Simulated scan of single mutants.
Amino acid sequence: MHELSIASAIVEQAAEIARADGADGVSSVTVRVGELAGVVPDALHFAFEVARDGTALAGARLIVEQVPAVAWCGGCAEEFAVGMPPFFWCPRCDRPSQELRGGRELEITEVAPVPAPA
């Protein structure tokens, strides 16, 4: 399960970001995961819960934004979903696409700090 190594990297990077911002802890981490990134969101959630224990993210929740895989057809200027398993054939002009525009993302987009006590 490679999601555990991905979750560990997310925890490390989010903790580093929080430290750099002067935060004592993290309440949530938002990540964008592309449809073709080879990451199973449920497995990533489970792995995150394991990886966060004993860290500044111990109480943090993981928010996964799934990004659909889309390709671009240069022949007819059509952007289309490639689906899973991926099919890179333009549904409009019936030609193969050679440009993937989205769906391979795996990035942290937000690290929310634990709110300061009032």
Rank of each mutant, 00 (worst) to 15 (best):
A9P: 01
Q98I: 11
I6A: 07
G83Q: 00
A77I: 00
V64M: 04
F48N: 09
G38K: 02
V111I: 06
F48P: 08
S28H: 05
F46K: 03
A81D: 13
A47Q: 01
S27D: 10
P96F: 12
A23H: 11
L100I: 12
A15D: 07
V67A: 04
A69F: 04
E35W: 07
D24R: 15
T30S: 14
I6Y: 03
A51D: 05
R32M: 09
E79T: 12
A20V: 10
V33W: 04
P91I: 08
E16D: 14
A56D: 12
W89T: 15
E79C: 06
G103L: 06
R19I: 08
A60K: 05
V26M: 06
A47E: 05
E12Q: 15
G54I: 07
S5E: 07
G74L: 08
T30W: 00
C90Q: 06
H2Q: 09
R101T: 09
G74A: 14
V11R: 02
S27L: 08
S27E: 14
A14R: 02
E107R: 15
A69Y: 07
Q98S: 14
I108P: 04
L4A: 09
W72G: 12
A58Y: 00
F80G: 06
D42R: 12
F80L: 08
V40L: 09
P86G: 08
A43K: 06
Q98K: 13
I6T: 08
E16K: 14
E79K: 11
L106R: 10
V33R: 06
S8K: 13
C76P: 04
A112P: 02
L4C: 08
R104G: 02
V67I: 15
P113G: 08
D42Q: 11
P113Y: 05
G54W: 05
W72F: 15
L44V: 05
L106W: 01
M84H: 12
